[in-house]
């Protein structure tokens, strides 16, 4: 009997502590200035919604706001896959209202992403039926783990970022280094590669665009710039654009080779602050940010 009491005490304490801890972390997450916390709090309403993987982070919000006077929210994330992006944009519109413009960097249509990324968004599962369904479908073990232990939902880099941006803005981050001489020299020796996209990803994009129809949202699909010698190594950008056009009936604006020189790049795939500003000037001049 004494032993049974002991086991019960551990189980009750573990359960109560788990729920109490998760509640506390959930409160911290809700109050954070991190973009997804603002998204699910309904505190991210904007004129221009920006999305992509790490390459989408070069949509530098302070500069767009300064140049156009439009309010912006960037919900890009490192390695963000298309299915999760689609859920986030739909949730954004439900919680914050429709933006006037949705700008999508389509290079997130690639299978080479961190599979554990999606599980990192576990902490927003209580806020989103769509996310919950996606998690349950794609990562049932993690989803179930989050149900058993609510603390487990907060076991991710996404939560660490929410904590980091608890009382500071995450709008102003961008690479400020210039691509190193070593990387510049190595670019010539890189192997060619193809974007590895799937019909499911194209469907997710098409489904997202269908969702935005009738909500009076202008959508622009773009390919953000690559370091030119690196861009030459991509074998199937043309095919990717064609496949997207066939799936969505929408033209992709290709800026992959639009920034020259080294000063604007942080590495092969990402513009730095200087490059991002030059690129955004180009988008503004081309009327991409008009609506």
């Amino acid at each position: 009997m004494k032993n049974l009491t002991w086991i019960l005490a551990v189980l009750i304490l573990a359960f109560v502590g788990d729920r109490a801890g998760a509640w506390l972390l959930g409160t911290i997450t809700q109050q954070s200035q991190f973009r997804y916390s603002r998204l699910y709090n309904g505190a991210a309403a904007c004129d221009v919604l920006l999305i992509g993987n790490s390459r989408g982070l070069i949509f530098y919000q302070p500069y767009i706001e300064e140049k156009t006077g439009l309010s912006t929210t960037n919900i890009s994330y490192n390695g963000l896959p298309m299915d999760l992006a689609s859920v986030l944009v739909k949730d954004f519109i439900d919680k914050n209202g429709a933006p006037k413009l949705l700008l999508v960097d389509v290079t997130m249509l690639d299978k080479r992403m961190d599979e554990r990324l999606l599980t990192g968004f576990n902490l927003y599962v209580p806020d989103s039926d769509r996310l919950s369904k996606l998690m349950e479908e794609k990562y049932p073990t993690s989803y179930f783990g989050g149900q058993v232990s609510n603390l487990y939902r907060y076991n991710s880099e996404v939560f660490q970022r929410a904590l980091y941006y608890w009382n500071r803005s995450d709008k102003d981050w961008l690479l400020d280094r210039v691509i190193s001489p070593t990387m510049q020299a190595n670019a010539a020796y890189l192997d060619s590669f193809d974007y590895d996209y799937s019909p499911e990803m194209l469907n997710d994009l098409a489904d997202l665009l269908q969702f935005t129809e009738g909500k009076n949202i202008k959508v622009e699909l773009v390919i953000n710039p690559y370091y030119p010698p690196f861009a030459e190594k991509i074998g199937n950008l043309g095919t990717l654009k064609e496949a997207i056009k066939n799936a969505t009936q929408k033209e992709v604006l290709d800026y992959s080779n639009s920034i020259q020189g080294v000063e604007g790049f942080g590495d092969y795939q990402h513009l730095n602050k200087t490059g991002a500003k030059a690129y955004l000037d180009m988008l503004i001049e081309d009327g991409v940010l008009d609506y």
């Binding site: 551990v10 304490l13 573990a14 788990d18 554990r116 993690s142 232990s149 603390l151």
Partner: peptide, 23 residues
């Protein structure tokens, strides 16, 4: 110490759930 025992087991379970890398 039974109280410490209960508390330490619960804390370890929380820490494993919160910090663990599973897979």
């Amino acid at each position: 110490n039974p109280v410490f025992r209960v508390a330490s087991f619960a804390v370890l379970l929380w820490m494993i759930a919160f910090f663990g890398t599973f897979g």
